[in-house]
Amino acid sequence: MTDTAPPDDPTRTDPDRPAVLVPLAVLEGEPLPTGTPDLLANAHVVLSGYHVIPEQTAAEQARAQFGETAMAKLEAVAGALRDAGATVETRLVFTHDRETTIDRLIYEHDCLAVLVPNGTERVDSVLVALRGTVGVGRNTRLVAGLFAESDVAVTLYHALNDGETIADGEAFLTGVRSDLVERGMDPDDLEVVVEEAEAAVDAIAGRAESHDAVIMGETDPSVTTFVFGMPAEQVAERFLGPVLVVQRERPAE
């Protein structure tokens, strides 16, 4: 496996590697959280350094002064990710609005997921919270792409929606499980949990405590363009470990 695609190679993205966007406030001294290189060893990382500037400052002005420093820091982080096995593309953006920038980059690089960059000591077990069948294929692509080659234990989790029975939930997750096995996951690494939960966010955050990382979807698909869906943000705040937020498919332009 090549760990670094040459930058001028047009086929630099291995199609099996899920593209994951890692935002980094590069000039605020935000380091790459511990554990991130391990978590994303099999990913194609879009390392997005950004610097938010106040409105009274022209973006060009900030770039002229801080561009070189920021780029050097970003390259150092990219090196650490490459050493762990990831392929890495770097982007550096000076912006007045973080959300706009990250949203655009997700779109331009067709990222499957965005990392909420929290640290973790190790990556042995991962909780995958699944809402329902809509867009579940993107979750399985991400999970299989990241962990098929590793021995990370993956727990598939579904909190029952209104009117669903335990049997419905189990049937759903069993389908996801076999899809993952088809994509190369070891069946022994996969566990399935269905439960009834008052508030899905609380339940996921509670479950997450016995895992090292969480994978979950964006918020309600009817609410558009929020980068981190609210539930994912709440989980990340309570869990304090890395959360991969799976992005919805963007409508083609």
Binding site: M71, R91, L92
Partner: peptide
């Protein structure tokens, strides 16, 4: 839409 990256980062147009 966005200035080309010249090796020191790109600029986001937000207005």
């Amino acid at each position: 839409a966005v200035d080309v990256d010249t090796g020191e980062g790109e600029l986001e147009r937000t207005i």
